[in-house]
């Protein structure tokens, strides 16, 4: 994937998405960026910063906790306009892990944003890119979805669902000129993890940004960030449960 000219960011204020957009802009200024996010001052700040750096930015409202509204909003994002080269799906919440399996509202909020939102975008972006006959979708998944564990299983399960959906979507769209990349970062120091202690192999958003761009350049289906995470998770994936349960993860 070269010549990225126009990108749509779902979760337009995400630190990881912003780092990725900047990485594209460092290669070629004048990028067109469509930011879909809640209409907050944070979104306006991001849009203005990117404009100041030379991007052509447009803003769309998106509230994933209201599925009916979200559907209409995402439809608007993908209706018309010049061709889209990349759709970056970055919206996500970590939330309170204990509330997310004990409180119905918290549990549904997590699935609405992380899973249902990703699926909505996957279907509608897939339709658009397929009509175009080219383009890529990138899902920011997580190592937490690779093997769901006690400490954050509600989050992990929502990510695992989205991860599986996008891997399948990539297969379904293979003949249509549409590429799907699933990126599985480990711990990233971003607003989402603010206040949490940094574990080993933790990273900055810019590292994930490079994994996205590199993964697209090489036509990968899955990219790990940092790359070593792949081997850590390969080890964990097949660990017998009694052992897995006792790990401090």
């Amino acid at each position: 994937m070269q010549n990225v000219q126009r990108v749509v960011v779902i979760g337009g204020t995400s630190a990881i998405a912003l780092a990725t957009v900047r990485e594209w802009m460092s290669q070629r200024p004048g990028l067109q960026v469509v930011l879909a996010a809640r209409p907050t001052p944070a979104r306006a700040d991001v849009a203005n910063e990117l404009r100041g750096e030379g991007a052509v930015v447009s803003e769309h409202d998106l509230e994933l906790t209201d599925p009916t509204l979200a559907r209409a909003q995402i439809e608007t994002v993908f209706a018309g306009g010049p061709d889209i080269d990349v759709v970056l799906v970055a919206a996500g919440v970590l939330g309170d892990q204990e509330a997310a399996w004990t409180d119905v509202d918290a549990a549904l909020r997590m699935t609405d944003i992380n899973y249902r939102g990703a699926v909505l975008v996957g279907v509608l972006a897939g339709r658009r890119l397929r009509e175009q006959g080219h383009g890529a979708m990138v899902l920011l998944s997580s190592v937490a979805g690779e093997r769901v564990r006690r400490s954050n299983f509600a989050y992990g399960a929502s990510k695992a669902g989205a991860d599986g959906f996008y891997l399948g979507l990539g297969e379904a769209l293979r003949g249509d000129g549409v590429h799907v990349l699933v990126v599985r970062p480990g711990f990233v120091r971003s607003p989402m993890t603010e206040g949490l202690p940094s574990p080993p192999l933790s990273q900055d958003p810019s590292q994930v940004a490079r994994a996205v761009i590199d993964g697209l350049a090489h036509g990968r289906r899955i990219a790990w960030s940092p790359p070593a995470m792949r081997w850590v998770m390969a080890g964990l994936r097949h660990l017998p449960y009694p052992l897995f349960r006792r790990l401090p993860v």
């Binding site: 070269q2 010549n3 006959g133 080219h134 003949g175 000129g177």
Partner: peptide
Amino acid sequence: WGRTAASVA
């Protein structure tokens, strides 16, 4: 001929 940027038609 350069085999970059495939698209479907």
